[in-house]
């Protein structure tokens, strides 16, 4: 961004990068070591069939619970980012409502095994076929493809943390009351990410590739919303009675 305030010092960027990395590590749900130790544990064929034979609404509910758990960690991540809690309450809610699932999708690459196209879910590594009964193959395939493409960038935890914060602090979300305040925070985060990538001697194209992910993430989230509303149209009582309240609040 060309109109960046010249007052951001290197020290400030280093400090922000440290704060965001620490916040990420404290709230990442699963440590990298835990995930790596579990990669050999993929669901066996009979376990896959067990998920496939669950009633559609039961599997939807399970996934809604898992997404909600992951989102709660993202809320904690946001709260620890310098400046986030200084935004007005309206904007904190707007940013999390729009961005928390996007960060969950980003975080998915940490729990993704590219070797066999599986993701950590419900205690083991699961391939896309585990989610067949949900009836949204397109969304599942897109989520797996996104995780795979994120993995191919080989981001460090620090870089992933800064990219997650950059997404969460998107200043173009609708209904922000203090847009310019969010904009400044996002610009600072982008500079910290840029600085980190340079420090790690990553090529310029990595940042370009990451910026391109913004629209993919938005597409994934809108597809999730559409899929949920199609499900809700058929099973309104299940959603009302059995889905986590936070999930309904965010996506209802």
């Amino acid at each position: 961004s060309g109109d960046m305030s010249p007052t951001v010092s290197m020290d400030e960027l280093e400090h922000l990068a440290q704060n965001i990395s620490k916040s990420h590590m404290e709230t990442c749900q699963y440590l990298q070591e835990e995930l790596q130790q579990s990669t050999w544990q993929t669901f066996l064929q009979d376990e896959v069939e067990c998920y496939q034979s669950k009633p559609k609404e039961v599997m939807w509910q399970l996934c809604a619970v898992k997404i909600t758990e992951a989102i709660q960690y993202v809320v904690e991540f946001a709260k620890r980012i310098d400046g986030f809690m200084e935004l007005c309450q309206n904007d904190q809610i707007v940013l999390l409502k729009a961005g928390s699932l996007e960060v969950v999708f980003i975080r998915m690459c940490r729990a993704f095994d590219t070797q066999n196209n599986t993701v950590y879910f419900d205690g083991k590594y699961a391939g896309p076929e585990v989610f067949k009964v949900l009836g949204c193959d397109d969304l599942i395939t897109s989520a797996y493809d996104f995780a795979k493409s994120m993995c191919s960038l080989h981001l460090s935890e620090d870089e992933l943390a800064l990219f997650s914060a950059f997404i969460l602090l998107s200043s173009d979300r609708s209904w922000l009351q203090e847009k310019s305040k969010v904009e400044k925070l996002q610009q600072k985060t982008q500079l910290a990410l840029q600085h980190m990538l340079q420090k790690h001697q990553r090529g310029e194209e990595i940042l370009t590739k990451l910026i391109c992910k913004v629209s993919t993430l938005r597409g994934l989230c809108s597809r999730h919303t559409e899929t949920l509303s199609a499900f809700r149209a058929v099973y309104p009582d299940i959603v009302r009675a059995h889905f986590p309240p936070l999930y309904k609040e965010l996506f209802g």
Partner: peptide
């Protein structure tokens, strides 16, 4: 917005542990 997002608002209010 706060009214429609009581749980999220509550999570934001809780102190970080």
């Amino acid at each position: 917005l706060k009214e429609k997002h009581k749980i999220l608002h509550q999570l934001l209010q809780n102190s970080t542990s």
